Simulated scan of single mutants.
Amino acid sequence: MDWNSAGLRASNFEGFVTFAELPDSDVPEAPGVYVVLRERADAPAFLSASVAGMFKGRTPSVSVERLEGKWVDDVPVLYIGKATQGSTSRRGLRKRLNEYRRIGNGEPVGHWGGRFIWQLADHADLTVAWKVVDGESPTDVEDSLIRDFVSQYGSLPFANLRYERKGARTENPVVPA
């Protein structure tokens, strides 16, 4: 796959809106996968402190050195995530992306994954795209996308942390088979 907006559109992703535009966007309530993109080709600037809200007493901020070490050059996709229906069948893409947007607004919301994007100086310019996954497990689709990304770039996307082993370098991510 081409990990840019054209490649994602060819793979049936839709949306491509900023986090600020999400509340007014027609985000499906269905389960699916989503990506966060930085369309700019220039080097990123990192904030010393995250704009994201704390969750369960944990600060979302990490060192600029850690962010620099996680950066993947020459690829717009910064994060790959999933949205399941949950046990109550009331979750899905709309709710999950709203949580992601709200933690970026400083609220104490449970979207800890992908938090590194909120230390990018240009986080307000990032775009979000999503894809409904009818008849498939969002977790399986997310895992497949992450495996494809790692196969192509040799590391996880910048803000994906779930598959890192404690103490392991991102050049050797643990991705489910």
Rank of each mutant, 00 (worst) to 15 (best):
R40N: 13
S48K: 13
V35S: 06
G106Y: 05
R40I: 07
E29T: 12
F19G: 11
P108G: 04
K95T: 10
V27S: 05
W118T: 12
S61D: 09
H123G: 09
T127E: 10
K56R: 15
V109Q: 04
P76G: 10
E68K: 01
W3Q: 04
R165I: 12
P60I: 14
R96H: 08
G81C: 13
S137W: 07
E65N: 11
R66Y: 12
D42G: 07
L67R: 08
S137R: 02
V72Y: 01
A49M: 11
V33F: 06
A41R: 14
P173M: 09
V128E: 05
V150G: 01
S87R: 12
S25R: 06
A30W: 01
Y153M: 05
S61I: 07
N12P: 04
R162A: 12
T127W: 01
G167T: 08
F19L: 08
V109F: 08
I117F: 04
G106Q: 04
V77T: 07
L78V: 13
D122Y: 08
I80C: 02
N4W: 02
E29Y: 01
R165F: 07
P23V: 06
R94I: 00
V133P: 15
P44Q: 02
N4Y: 05
E39A: 10
P60E: 15
G110F: 14
D74M: 08
P44E: 07
P76D: 12
Y79Q: 06
P28V: 11
D42E: 11
S11C: 07
D148Q: 14
Y34P: 00
D73F: 08
S89Q: 13
V27I: 13
V77C: 02
A49L: 11
F158D: 03
S89W: 12
P31I: 06
R9H: 04
D24G: 15
F19I: 01
P23Q: 07
L126V: 04
Q152C: 11
F16R: 02
S25P: 00
V36P: 08
E107C: 05
V33S: 06
E68H: 08
W130K: 01
H111F: 10
G113S: 08
A177Y: 09
R147T: 00
S155M: 09
T84W: 09
R91G: 02
E142N: 11
A168V: 06
P23F: 11
G167D: 11
L145T: 05
E39G: 03
E171S: 15
G104P: 00
F46V: 10
S48D: 15
V150N: 06
F19Q: 04
V75T: 12
I103W: 14
L8V: 02
V133E: 14
R169F: 14
